[in-house]
């Protein structure tokens, strides 16, 4: 009981803090027994990798093909781990920003993850050699953020 209250509090804090706290991620302890904390951490890592890609695309960070490849690989790694982290019927789900469509339309959600895996896999396996190539690759990868969050994420 105490444990689940702690998880609820963590998830709720992360939910609000991620958008409210510019530039600094709210640390959420990743608990191997709690998929909510795991997926929050995974998504935050995607955000960090996206920040690096965005910086290089805008010229705020010097373009480096190895760093670009590492960032795209990080996003691909995230996609590979997501499908098992949204078990249905957990009270904790109500405390994360996971939307009800994840479970109401589970097959479509799975297809969306499969697309995320395919798109990030393609980006990783043809590493961008120039900023232009990175922009082209990220245009495809980044569209997954919006399309998935449009259908499957809600604010609380």
């Amino acid at each position: 009981m105490k444990n689940s209250i702690r998880i609820l509090a963590l998830a709720a804090t992360a939910t609000f803090a991620v958008s409210a706290n510019a530039g600094s991620h709210n640390f959420v302890a990743a608990d191997v027994n709690d998929p909510v904390t795991l997926r929050i951490n995974i998504m935050q890592n995607v955000g960090a990798a996206t920040g690096l890609v965005s910086g290089m695309m805008k010229g705020n960070v010097p373009f480096d093909p190895i760093a670009a490849q590492a960032a795209l690989s990080t996003i691909n790694t995230a996609s590979l781990g997501l499908s098992g982290l949204f078990p249905s019927g957990m009270d904790e789900n109500m405390r994360s920003t996971a939307g009800p469509a994840i479970w109401a339309d589970a097959d479509s959600f799975k297809s969306a993850i499969a697309k995320f895996i395919a798109d990030t896999g393609a980006a990783k396996s043809s590493p961008p050699a120039t900023v232009e190539e990175l922009q082209a690759a990220f245009a495809i990868v980044g569209a997954n953020c919006q399309s998935c969050h449009k259908a499957y994420r809600i604010k609380r």
Binding site: A22, Q44, G47, A48, T50, H149, K150, R153, I154
Partner: peptide
């Protein structure tokens, strides 16, 4: 994209 490189959700997209 938000300052944390989270992305817009729901109808905000």
């Amino acid at each position: 994209f938000t300052p944390d490189f989270d992305s817009a959700s729901g109808v905000m997209v």
